[in-house]
Design a protein around this nucleic acid. Structure first.
Lengths: 228, 228
DNA sequence: CCTTGTTGTTGACACTGTGCCAACAAGCTC
DNA sequence: GAGCTTGTTGGCACAGTGTCAACAACAAGG
């Protein structure tokens, strides 16, 4: 008799298991609405007992928050966009950066930042708002308009508002396909330029002249980023 | 013995009862997130048995959809904004109309159109998207850019994107107070003008010249835009 | 005033999904 | 292999929801 009984389950490192569950959860939350994803589903997907989810993440809501955080961490945040050239050039590179990072997340991003799903959870709003803040600061930095953090809440608020435009536009692009990537690029670029130029007039000077190049519209410097 | 026993509950017309419940539900959904509002709470608030809610509205989700619909009906949609004057004047009147209608709803509006609450329910998204469509068409009409419905999906999509900016901006204004009403007005006006002028160039001509009033904001020649 | 019929309303039922926790077992060390 | 650590399981209790037969408020007819 072979005494080597096959173990009924595999024993993993906490971090590994956590990451695995997080990945399955992210996928499911991207496929169907929050309420339609039971913890049982996630556990089944991860090949794990349901109780383990609570053990690692506490409440289901907490798991969801972790998923949101993980996604909004914005991987690729470090690949600096060189802030040279005219304001328009820099704006368009920033927009391309937006579109690229989002393209990698696809459905899940749209689901998480969804327009007005069921709920409006204050905690989720806070997290998304923070992420918007980070992205905003980064954008301002790309544009050469970096203002010290926490100083001008008004500018940051306006950039969060702009983030609302970005997300809505991306939603039109990814979900319905009612806008092409070029349309999204155009809309977001023009809007951002307007904001910087007309709403932050004093900063615009510091940023240098708008023109100085020929503006290559469609094809921006596409980072070789492919899905999955 | 006084035979007149006081009735244990009042018997109302279905429409009246429906409206009453709807009102209570709207209030509660505006105060706390969807998941934290139990049907029991709503029933208690309305002084009614919980089962009655299901009898009138079916599922809790359906009740929520009714609340959203009721709110996005946009009362005051009929008070036409005279579409005279320069493009800028018309844009600013449209923006004022936006801000006014929203100001009446306050918290509940912010909650319903919340940035990314828990869920992203496709049905809710559809309803909000439809409401955005209506508001967009109305806006285009105000601007004298009315295009026949269903014709140019691209323009409508972009206006829905703009609606994303509107909602995010309003959120900053109403919720956090990080933006003043004047800030919101400025941001939304400039953005809308840009969209109409630079993204819908062919329509812009049909809309007439932009200027005709003073209001040239800060920086000088914003007309120096020819590309595209 | 009592009877009868209609129907708005109630209260209890079963069911699903969640959070919790003690018991179990996989894998390491000696 | 014995003993220990701890990642993992399975079942329990509970809250929230959807359903439905029975009830009671009100109107109409005698």
């Amino acid at each position: 008799m072979s005494s080597a009984e096959a173990p009924r389950w595999k024993r993993l490192e906490p971090d590994t298991r956590r990451e695995q569950i997080l990945e399955c959860a992210a996928r499911l939350f991207g496929e169907r609405p929050y309420a339609d994803v039971s913890t049982t589903d996630i556990a089944l997907e991860a090949g794990v007992a349901r109780g383990l989810i609570n053990h690692y993440f506490g409440q289901k809501r907490d798991l969801y928050l972790k998923v949101v955080k993980r996604m909004l961490l914005m991987p690729g945040l470090e690949e600096n966009v060189p802030m040279t050239g005219s304001l328009r050039q820099r704006v368009e590179r920033s927009v391309e950066w937006y579109l690229n990072t989002v393209a990698t997340h696809g459905k899940t991003y749209v689901a998480v930042t969804g327009s007005g799903g069921i709920g409006s959870d204050p905690e989720v709003d806070r997290i998304i708002s923070e992420a918007d803040d980070v992205a905003s600061s980064k954008t301002l930095e790309f544009l050469g308009l970096k203002v010290e953090v926490g100083s001008d809440v008004r500018h940051r608020a306006m950039m969060r508002s702009y983030a609302g435009l970005v997300k809505a536009t991306i939603r039109e692009w990814i979900r319905g396909g009612t806008l092409s990537r070029e349309d999204a690029h155009l809309l977001l670029s023009e809007a951002l330029i307007t904001i910087v130029r007309d709403v932050f007039p004093q900063l615009a000077q510091q940023a240098g002249p708008e023109r100085g190049d020929a503006k290559a519209p469609k094809t921006g410097p596409k980072r070789g980023r492919d899905e999955k």
